[in-house]
Amino acid sequence: MKRLINQTPGKTLKLFLALLPFALLIVLYMASSDARLEVNPNDKLLPSFSQIGDGIDRMAFEPSKRTGEYLFWQDTASSLTRLGMGVLIAAAIGLFIGIVTGALPLFSAWLSPLLTVVSLIPPLAVLPILFIVFGLGELSKVVLIAIGITPFIARDIQRRTQEIPAEQLVKAQTLGANTSQILLRVVLPQILPKLIDAVRLSLGAGWLFLIAAEAVAATDGLGYRIFLVRRYMAMDVILPYVAWITVLAFFIDQALRWLNEKAFPWHQTGEKS
């Protein structure tokens, strides 16, 4: 028999193995849910799938009795707007700081130590300050996300910039390029796919800061809703919301990966040329 490190699953087996844990979890949930509901039909902790379906129906396809809005979609739109703006701001600032500190030693000398210290500040500890300074509106939530992930993106981009072979920068200089030409034509285009990678990695943290900010002060949003209905132990709403956030995160990640492959065909295979 082959060693375990040399055993690889075939195509069918691989798919089966990939789906197996999900199937097991669903079966386990259904069994536990049934068992609890048998004992107490009013149990709220593990609702049955039909109860969850009712919950989804109520939130997504019936207008709210109080405001007349479809809460689920409104929450989704609000949350995605905040996340998108926060990440976009973080990506723009991080890209700029990263390239400047990665390529220009004179700027790195004073920006890098500052960046290192700032990145150590726990963003959630700053949240009260943001509420005081920016108020309880949209701005403070967006700023929290931006503050939370900008240092990570900036440092990642700084490292990626430093990884560009020095030969390329020297070559550009021997062709007569000045600093801005080198930054715009040699460094920036090679860093853009790395930026998308960095954004993909920081989206997890972005969701964390989004939900934290919404939990503390908001009037809508996916995180707000989860924390609101927690008071009524409304697991039939919380569970689909959590699943929906997971699905959104998955598709955003896949979309960015797809964008990277389509927009930068020379990347991955070509970066070592």
């Binding site: 072979p165 030969e167 390329q168 020297v170 070559k171 550009a172 200089q173 021997t174 062709l175 007569g176 034509r185 040699v186 285009p189 090679q190 930068f264 020379w266 990347h267 070509g270 970066e271 070592k272 040329s273």
Partner: peptide, 19 residues
């Protein structure tokens, strides 16, 4: 004391722009 257009260079590798 820095590279300039009067002196061209070809390295063993990484001499061209991969993008």
């Amino acid at each position: 004391a820095e590279p300039g257009p009067d002196r061209g260079i070809v390295f063993q590798q990484y001499s061209v722009f991969p993008h």
